[in-house]
Each structure stands twice: as structure tokens, then as C-alpha cells.
Amino acid sequence: MTAHTNSFGEFLKHVVLLFGAVIVLLPFYLMISYSLKSPAEIESNTGGLIGSQQIMTDRRCIKEGNPPEQCEMRPIVYNYTAAFKEAPLLRYMMNGVLVTVSIFLIQVVVALPCAYALAKLRFWGRDVVFGLVIFCLLIPVHAIALPLYIMLAKAGLTNTYAALVIPWTISVFGIFLMRQFFKTVPDDLIDAARMDGMSEFSIVWRVMLPTAIPALLAFGIFSIVAHWNDYYWPRVVITGDRDLMTPPLGLRMFKSDLDGNEYGPMMAATTVIVTPLVVAFLLAQRRFIEGITLTGMK
């Protein structure tokens, strides 16, 4: 009897999970599928996942006056070359890497000492400071976007990398997450380091940082995903200079095309932009979950 109800319960659980998986994965399926098919197949919604991959003619190429035989190619090749040709996708990706990596590194440099102080040092007003950190977690970015923009504009920093990086360098979420993790590090370890002659800063970098790798990876994924995918802030501070655009901004290049059926190249670009994140997540998956559940220690 119990076995029966159990298996029914399992079945139900899996139905719900499958349903959820479909909702999450369907857009990805569509994205990959569109990035492989020809415009005609996309329009008529035929061709399954990868389309028939028949030789097609690039209309724009003909328009530009090239001989027809040079403009014939398979849809997959067309979509992906168009993605890189129509917008400087590589440039955008480089920008994305530069911005997200600098944000993450500076966040770590700021958050680790803060978290260490909040978790392990006794000083007057510590609880108030930690209260402020919690409070800052509640402030939505959009609420302070305008003042931030005005400040950056007054400093003459709009349309620079600095504008993309500076507002995110202090991550209260990072401070909070690392502080919670540091709380689990035994005090004896820190005292032992002090006896060995380490300064408080050495303790942060030589003792706390290596023990906090799982938490740091979790934070890293949160931070990198958030800033790689961020559309809002780059849209606010990058107003003219196309060379500074990050990948999500770059996607707009396709959207504003006059002939509306350029889904193929656009989806190809999206695929290229999303891939690094998916790969990074899959590689760090286990450490990521460890970090979130904070069971990485002992």
C-alpha cells in the first residue's frame, strides 16, 4: 500500500518537475532551433529542431551587388556569420568579459575584508553596520538609478567602462553571503593564524579566502550572471558609444533592423551570448550548490 502511494507521489512530483522543466527549456529550444533554420522555415514554422539545412540565398548579399553563387550558403552558416558580421559581437563579448570580471574582482576585494570584520572582529557599532548591510539588500537598483546616473554624468563618466563597473563594486549581497560563511569558520583557526604571525589582512587573503572558495563560487555565479545579462544599467549609461556595448545591448542591433525576419542571426547571437554562462554553470554546478547551502565547511 505504502509502496503504491509512494510511487504515485513520485509520479506526481515528476510530472510537476517535468512541467517546470518544459517551461524553462522551451525558450532555449526555440532559440537554438531558430538559430539553425532558414528565414523561410522560421516563418512557416517547419523543419523541426535543425531545419532541412538546404542551400539558401542571402538576399542582402545580392542586394549589395555580389554574384549569386557567392551568396549561397547553408542557413546555419548564414545565421552565425550574420550574427558576427552585422554587429561586432566579439567586441561586445569582450566588453562583457571585461566588465563582469572587473566587477567581480573588485566586489571580492571589498566584500571579503568587510565580511571578515563583520563576522569575526569585535568593534563598536558592528551590529549597526551589519543592520545597514541587511537594509541595503532591500534597495532595488532602479530606485537609485537616476541619482547614480546624475552623479556619473557630473563626473563625466557616462559612456566609459567606469560607468559600467563603479556602481556595482560594493556588493552588499556579497558581504552578507561571505559574512554568513565566515561565521562558520572556527575562531581557533583565526587565533592560530594570529599566533603564527599573520596580520588581519593576511588572515583574510591567506586563511579565509581559501576556506571560502565554495561560497565565493556561488557568489561569483550570482554576480557574473547578473552583470553579464544586465540590460538595464548599460542601457542607461552607454548612450552613444557603440564600442562600449555589452552583449545584451548588442542584441538590440538586430531588433532594430528594418526587414523584420532576421530572427535567425538574432537567435544565433543570443546563443553565442548565453553559451559561456551555461558552460560556466555546468562546470561549477556542484560547488555552486555547496556554496548556496553553505555546507562546504567540514
Binding site: 587565533d191 592560530a192 604571525g197 599573520m198
Partner: peptide
Amino acid sequence: PSRRDLAMVFQSYALY
């Protein structure tokens, strides 16, 4: 502590 030239062994060993 480090300048007092003392060494300490902890209950939890506190190895890195």
C-alpha cells in the same frame, strides 16, 4: 601575539 614568541596548540587543532 606573534611577537611574544609563544606557540599555541588548540583543542580543535586549527590546522589550515
